[in-house]
Design a protein around this nucleic acid. Structure first.
Lengths: 358, 358
DNA sequence: CTGAAAGCGCTTACAG
DNA sequence: CTGAAAGCGCTTACAG
């Protein structure tokens, strides 16, 4: 350790030129004689100059080259959902080559808020609710461009959306067309209370998670009376819990279940298997996302395929556009229906059950 | 948009004080009269001052409050392994409250390297091979503290290690004690070539992934002749592929398989099930990590439990210590054996097979 | 308690 | 082609 890191001034002194010239030589950003350039480069080499201090450069340039990615949950929870990872990867696909790295920002209660502090040039909101959220206010005050992914429409926020409502409506309609009448929902987390429980009108009314709410609305358009279970998020385990709960009452068992993600749907299928129910003969199950799930139970799942990576890339492009001062429109992606082998017409016995109840 | 973001100077001017005084008032970092403080705060409020520009502050202070996390793979690949997510979360546990956020750095070939450019105060290397790696050289040149997680010992790098070799040796010994003699390995990725294939001496010789190599060595200490299959990384799918490959030849089937991760072991168990083999009756399987796998095949897996979150937290503490100028020692964590229901003595038939071969 | 000054390390017009 | 100067926005000794 030579103690202090050499600066551009050190290099210039050693090369016997002014700092300005050294800067031009090293950055190739102005006319410099070959001889001078060689001398400066040699000096930099000898001193072990590691390039300009990014802090100084970013102050001078007004850019840090860092994009903040704001996640609601702990990293652990956020990355458990493969969609989030894919979207993050999509963002990096675009921002990385443009010289921007991603800063992870999770807002834990208490502690310093990096949303206020961090040297970021822009922000991408992940699974947040921009409208409700005071995070947006903070960022807006700083004058940073904001991009949200599947965010509730909010002023000054460019959104990368998904047809959550319409897509879920299509799934529900698919079930209805097959003859299902008694359908239950398994939702993503509806609020930040970290409790999973049966859906109640009260709970629905207070739900804050935009994506989950939109998907729920789509289902209700077709099955206004649907029961449901709100989970803690997109995992197979949560789907299993939900499935057990919804399928427990044999006298009042739905003939189909709409999972708000493929992982949840996979868990439901496991629950069905536990109870000796065959899918799709005794129970139809649909998911959402179209992600590859490492589980045989997920094979041939009927679902809506969403373009997660493309969404991330779009968010990345939106960030770059805003940073370039362009007018950037919100965009909305469309999911694609994928018919699998987990949906069929309800069994006669189920219909009989309904009839008996009537 | 009011055009320009207000600066401290603007606030000072409006409050009728000097910038120095405004700074002291806003940061509570010096003696300021109550009246002045009120005036400055009011001015800040009126102007919508969003706090000090982090770029300027970090230049002045010589700290950006950002810790770089260097991942070998794409984010998608890195976060597929739950261990990495847990460790990352552990780092954030410690660095977050201290006011540091995490910057994701993945070195894709070509493109600007944020390892050179980014305003980071320190670096944590994830699943890299510090000794071999030129990344370390870059960071060292910048004079930044470096912490590696399960890195090969390297000068000036504080490591957070795990007893990979010894732990795997213990697993292997467990199998040997049960009577197994014909054991196969399923390894994590051994190099960056993105091909999965059977282990060969050549491949083993060129392996660069420290963790995988250490675990392999531990197994070889007990079973020097073990065959094996090198995967693309810790996923159930890769374990499935490996299992199929290793179990395909009925004449030469191992009686036990050592997976280098629980996900790989889970895949192996699935492969066994496909072939009609019962675990542990026909095949013993062990894993590594002790992670919760969302899969019934993983229930009761015999494995070594490693403290992933604690490792991340230790890495976070090491970073903070180095930033504080302390002498920070490398540390090594110990895994804990967990006997499950996936290991047993080899069946008589298998022994017979060996006998027949002899 | 308050202000003038220096400086963090760099880049970029602007003269020469 | 080269250098002196200004300035990015802030913080921190140092006088007063």
């Amino acid at each position: 350790m030579s103690g202090e890191r050499p600066t551009l001034a050190d290099v210039a002194r050693r090369a016997g030129v002014s700092p300005s010239t050294a800067s031009l030589a090293l950055n190739d950003s102005g006319p410099v004689s070959a001889a001078t350039r060689v001398r400066v480069e040699a000096a930099a080499q000898e001193l072990g100059y590691a390039g300009p201090d990014p802090r100084a450069r970013s102050l001078r340039r007004g850019r840090s080259g860092i994009v903040g990615v704001v996640l609601e949950d702990s990293l652990r929870d956020a990355f458990r959902d493969p969609m989030n990872v894919l979207m993050l990867d999509g963002i990096a696909d675009v921002t990385g080559p443009a010289g921007n790295s991603l800063l992870l920002i999770t807002e834990r209660a208490g502690g310093p808020s990096s949303l206020v502090d961090a040297p970021i040039d822009a922000v991408v909101l992940f699974g947040c609710s921009p409208r409700v959220d005071d995070k947006v206010a903070v960022v807006r005050r700083r004058g940073l461009p904001i991009v949200s992914i599947e965010g509730e429409p909010a002023d000054g926020v460019v959104d990368v959306g998904l047809d959550n409502r319409e897509a879920t409506r299509a799934l529900a309609q698919h079930l209805r067309d097959l003859g299902h009448r008694d359908v239950a929902l398994v939702t993503l987390e509806l609020d930040r209370e970290r409790r999973h429980r049966l859906l109640t009108p009260d709970l629905i009314g207070r739900a804050t998670t935009y994506t989950a709410v939109e998907r729920m609305k789509g289902a209700f358009e077709v099955f206004p009376e649907a029961r449901g279970f709100a989970t803690l998020g997109s995992t197979i385990d949560e789907g299993l819990v939900a499935g057990r709960e919804l399928l427990a009452d044999t006298a009042h068992r739905p003939t189909a279940i709409i999972g708000q993600s493929d992982l949840l749907a996979t868990g439901v299928i496991r629950a069905a298997a536990e109870l000796g129910l065959r899918v799709p003969d005794d129970l139809s199950v649909v998911g959402f996302d179209g992600v590859r799930v490492d589980d045989p139970a997920a094979d041939g799942l009927t679902t809506m395929v969403q373009p997660a990576i493309a969404k991330g890339q779009a968010a990345g492009r939106a960030v770059l556009g805003l940073l370039a001062g362009e007018e950037v429109p919100s965009v909305s992606f469309t999911s694609e229906f994928r018919r699998g082998r987990t949906t069929a017409s309800p069994a006669a016995s189920a219909s009989a059950g309904s009839a008996a109840r009537a």
